[in-house]
Structure formats: C-alpha cells, structure tokens
Simulated scan of single mutants.
Amino acid sequence: MNSPDAVPDSTRSDADPPVIGWREWVGLPELGIAHIKAKIDTGARTSALHTFSLEVAEEAGVRTARFGVHPFQRDSDTIVWCRAPVIDERSVRDSGGHREWRFVIATQIEMAARRWPVEITLTARDNMLFRMLVGRTAMRGMRIDPTASFVTGVPAPGPR
C-alpha cells in the first residue's frame, strides 16, 4: 500500500496513538459510506448509526439487515442503501436513559488514516445532531482531545 490515499487495514499500534477530536469525519467503506460526520462519545460503549427502513431477514442462511442511511446532517435527499449481517441484538440505554432493543452489525470504520472492525447498533437518530456516534469500544488505542474538532481532516469538496 504505497498510495498516499491508502488506508492501512491492520491492527492499530498503541505506540503512537492518533489524536482525534470530539467530532470527526469517518468512513464506513463496507456499507458504501465514504464519509459521515460522527460524534466521538466516550460515554457510549457501542457505536450507533442512524438508519431508516430497517428490515432484517434470512439471506442464504444468514440474518441480514437492509437499511437506508442519510449520511449528511439536514439532508434527507441523499440516501445510501446498505446491507450487513446481523451479529447480535442488544438492549441499549440511550442518552435519555431509555432502553431500546437494537440490531448490531460488524463493519469496518476508517478514521485517522486507519481502518479496523467495529460493532455498530442500528437506530433512528432523527432527533440527534449527529447521524453517527462512535462509542468507546471503537476508539481503543486513540487519544481524544475534547477541545478539538475534525483533527483527522475534512472530506474533499465536490459531489457527496
């Protein structure tokens, strides 16, 4: 991987942990999402992604979630249709203290010029400021600067 745009697909080294801000642009390449603004939330254990039209069905013997994502805040016209195997179902407490039963998928996340597997719960985040929340289990090996934003960069201008 000698390309300057290449994202290493390896385990992260704690020898030189990257610094990220309280909000960052992340990619979910296996879901077809090049970039989505995410809140980095050390108070949340698991990451969460805003979805709609969520359907779970058996496909070739595997429980699979099919769902839509509006990857950009305040934009309901841009839709990415996604498909991923369901790895679990969990009761999750939201920021208001309410419990919700959610499907969980595993996928790759890209951030800070790295790529690694994470678990993400699927939920409606219509009333939330961020379409994605990155929980603390997805941030192992990173340092968070709560005063900084978009430390890892912003997406290139052009078509989203």
Score class of each variant (00 low, 15 high):
residue 132 M to Y: 07
residue 9 D to T: 12
residue 11 T to R: 08
residue 58 E to Y: 09
residue 76 S to R: 15
residue 141 G to E: 05
residue 46 T to P: 02
residue 136 R to K: 12
residue 91 S to N: 03
residue 44 A to D: 00
residue 85 P to G: 03
residue 141 G to H: 02
residue 146 P to C: 05
residue 76 S to C: 09
residue 139 M to H: 01
residue 11 T to Q: 08
residue 74 R to A: 14
residue 154 V to F: 04
residue 100 E to V: 11
residue 142 M to F: 13
residue 151 V to W: 10
residue 18 P to T: 13
residue 76 S to H: 14
residue 86 V to C: 06
residue 56 V to G: 12
residue 10 S to Y: 12
residue 138 A to Y: 06
residue 96 G to Y: 04
residue 69 V to Y: 10
residue 139 M to E: 04
residue 57 A to T: 14
residue 133 L to V: 11
residue 118 V to T: 08
residue 124 A to Q: 11
residue 95 S to L: 00
residue 37 K to C: 12
residue 89 E to K: 13
residue 160 R to M: 15
residue 67 F to A: 01
residue 95 S to H: 01
residue 13 S to R: 03
residue 122 L to W: 07
residue 43 G to M: 00
residue 148 A to D: 06
residue 119 E to D: 08
residue 54 L to A: 14
residue 96 G to W: 09
residue 48 A to M: 08
residue 89 E to N: 13
residue 113 A to N: 08
residue 73 Q to P: 04
residue 107 T to Y: 08
residue 145 D to A: 00
residue 86 V to M: 10
residue 54 L to N: 12
residue 140 R to A: 13
residue 139 M to P: 01
residue 107 T to N: 06
residue 38 A to E: 04
residue 156 A to V: 12
residue 101 W to P: 08
residue 150 F to S: 06
residue 47 S to V: 01
residue 27 G to T: 14
residue 42 T to N: 07
residue 152 T to H: 10
residue 96 G to F: 08
residue 127 N to K: 12
residue 83 R to P: 05
residue 112 A to C: 09
residue 29 P to M: 07
residue 100 E to G: 11
residue 124 A to L: 13
residue 102 R to D: 15
residue 37 K to E: 14
residue 138 A to M: 06
residue 133 L to W: 03
residue 16 D to G: 01
residue 31 L to K: 00
residue 132 M to H: 08
residue 94 D to K: 00
residue 107 T to I: 14
residue 109 I to M: 10
residue 65 A to T: 03
residue 158 G to F: 04
residue 121 T to W: 05
residue 21 G to R: 07
residue 46 T to R: 03
residue 121 T to H: 02
residue 111 M to W: 07
residue 80 V to H: 07
residue 154 V to N: 06
residue 7 V to C: 10
residue 84 A to Q: 04
residue 102 R to K: 15
residue 89 E to Y: 10
residue 34 A to L: 13
residue 131 R to F: 12
residue 24 E to H: 03
residue 128 M to L: 15
residue 5 D to C: 09
residue 98 H to A: 10
residue 46 T to M: 07
residue 96 G to V: 02
residue 89 E to H: 14
residue 54 L to G: 11
residue 127 N to C: 10
residue 69 V to M: 05
residue 3 S to C: 07
residue 45 R to A: 01
residue 120 I to Y: 00
residue 123 T to Q: 11
residue 59 E to I: 09
residue 11 T to D: 11
residue 19 V to I: 15
residue 85 P to C: 03
residue 40 I to F: 02
residue 42 T to S: 08
residue 55 E to R: 14
residue 48 A to V: 13
residue 117 P to E: 01
residue 26 V to H: 06
residue 78 T to I: 15
residue 145 D to S: 01
residue 44 A to T: 01
residue 35 H to L: 04
residue 46 T to A: 04
residue 139 M to A: 02
residue 145 D to W: 04
residue 79 I to C: 06
residue 40 I to L: 00
residue 53 S to D: 15
residue 146 P to F: 03
residue 16 D to F: 15
residue 121 T to D: 08
residue 60 A to H: 10
residue 137 T to P: 00
residue 117 P to T: 03
residue 49 L to E: 02
residue 111 M to F: 10
residue 126 D to H: 14
residue 34 A to C: 12
residue 156 A to D: 11
residue 85 P to Q: 04
residue 136 R to M: 08
residue 44 A to P: 02
residue 152 T to V: 13
residue 11 T to A: 14
residue 12 R to L: 14
residue 129 L to S: 07
residue 153 G to N: 09
residue 20 I to L: 12
residue 131 R to N: 15
residue 21 G to H: 09
residue 75 D to T: 08
residue 117 P to I: 05
residue 105 I to K: 01
residue 47 S to T: 06
residue 65 A to C: 07
